[in-house]
Amino acid sequence: MRFLPTLSFLVAMPALAGNPWNIDLPESRLAFEATQQGGQFEGEFEQFSADMQFSAEQLGDSHFNVRIDVTSIQTGSSQRDRELPKQDWFAMDEFTEARFETTEIREATDNVNYAYAAEGTLTIKGHSEPVVLPFDWQISDSGQARMQGELVIDRTTFGIGEGDWEDPSAVGHDVRVLVDVQLNPAD
């Protein structure tokens, strides 16, 4: 009985730090939909990692810090992918990482499709902008979590497609970002 306070302290530890989760990368997708000459195409970032703290009961302690390897972009067209590292697009010589760090995770009272909303700062190509990512968080019977969400960003806000490429008829400004992430509870 003497060591019970110590034990309870250990049990309480994860709760204090929020509930940490590890991303199962092969089962996860960070994709986007964009338009080229009025036609839609899809792409994804194959490499990304994140510190994920989430508990539906303790949204105040929940926090995401996502790092995306921009050089892992893939749009299913080698011709298109050859353009993306260039200065007018992602300028990968200088900027190899994009980030999303939350400032607040709350219930998505203003969105009927998603239960939660992650407010935070999205940084791409050195441009930081506040964004809101509405998302769902479902826990399976085996204790895994699946996070799904989406948001639309304007690529020009982040300097993606500069100069001539700001013309929306060649490449549309709106890019729909699709998040579908599988997570395991971190021990």
């Binding site: 080229q36 000459q37 036609g39 195409f41 299913g76 080698s78 298109r80």
Partner: peptide
């Protein structure tokens, strides 16, 4: 090349062959 093809912004045409 797996580029989308939209005829005069009116008709979306599917791709014939894989990338």
């Amino acid at each position: 090349a797996n580029f989308p093809l939209n005829v005069f912004g009116v008709v979306q045409v599917p791709n014939l062959v894989p990338e």
